[in-house]
């Protein structure tokens, strides 16, 4: 018990003194997760829109698949991307294994389903009459889609934030693709897992608090948005 209390106070100390290692890891984590969220959004929102606006055979199955992939195990994505990026893999020539770039690719894949799925849900939340209304007022197909997306902007932002939450808190991809290299690919979750097993409790707790704070901020943001 004493150890935990001590660890906690030391962790607070690490945070308030802006310990360079803690800060560096936090910044890298944010950088990687924000990049994958940005990339994921760029792909997933238009893709979700396409799935929502187009009628095609097997649309239902596609939706089911997407929803199943919400709980895609991170280690599975890790394995998949590892196989893709390893020296013998199809993308081995890119030399992205054990780099932040590789981690971004892995996390992007990981969060695509959740952003696509919630994009579709967001668009479904827009009244069907909006489509008729904008067409009736003379909008082209593209303008109509843009209008519907704009009507759903807060829900879409929610989808993006959810994706970010998943990216920042996952450990499988970061560990398997990043390799947890100190000063290069080490992020909050991988550091916590390593340092805890080494008995370095205070660093883990400090990073845990930061991660939790980020999660809290995300939640507050989501709540704010959903109230609109």
């Amino acid at each position: 018990m004493n150890e935990i209390v001590n660890g906690f106070f030391q962790a607070i100390n690490l945070i308030v003194t802006l310990n360079p290692e803690v800060m560096e890891i936090t910044l890298r984590t944010l950088e990687i997760s924000l990049s994958s969220t940005f990339l994921g959004t760029l792909i997933a929102v238009p893709l979700g829109g396409l799935i929502y606006f187009r009628n095609f055979k097997g649309k239902r199955s596609v939706m089911n698949l997407i929803q199943t992939l919400y709980s895609l195990p991170t280690v599975l994505v890790g394995l998949l991307v590892f196989l893709l990026l390893s020296y013998q893999g199809p993308l081995g020539g890119l030399n992205l294994l054990f780099t932040p770039g590789g981690m971004i690719i892995g996390q992007t894949i990981l969060i695509l389903p959740i952003i696509i799925g919630f994009t579709i849900t967001a668009l479904k939340g827009v009244k069907g009459e909006i489509k008729d209304l904008s067409m009736s007022l003379g909008a082209s197909e593209f303008q109509t889609i843009y209008t519907i997306m704009r009507e759903a902007k807060y829900a879409l932002l929610g989808a993006v934030i959810l994706g970010f939450g998943r990216a920042i808190s996952e450990v499988g991809v970061a560990l398997m693709i990043g390799g947890n290299i100190r000063g290069f690919t080490r992020v909050i979750t991988t550091t916590m897992s390593l340092e805890t097993s080494k008995g370095n409790i205070e660093l883990s707790i400090a990073l845990g608090i930061i991660l939790l704070t980020i999660a809290l901020i995300i939640n507050l943001l989501l709540n704010q948005i959903q109230e609109k």
Partner: peptide, 27 residues
């Protein structure tokens, strides 16, 4: 674009009255 329609159950776009009326001109 030469036909105007007012629907039975009118909906509005997010935004002000001005934004709503401006929509047709905007596009």
């Amino acid at each position: 674009r030469r036909i105007g329609m007012v629907f039975q159950n009118p909906v509005v776009f997010n935004g002000t009255v001005f934004d709503n009326i401006h929509y047709g001109l905007n596009i």
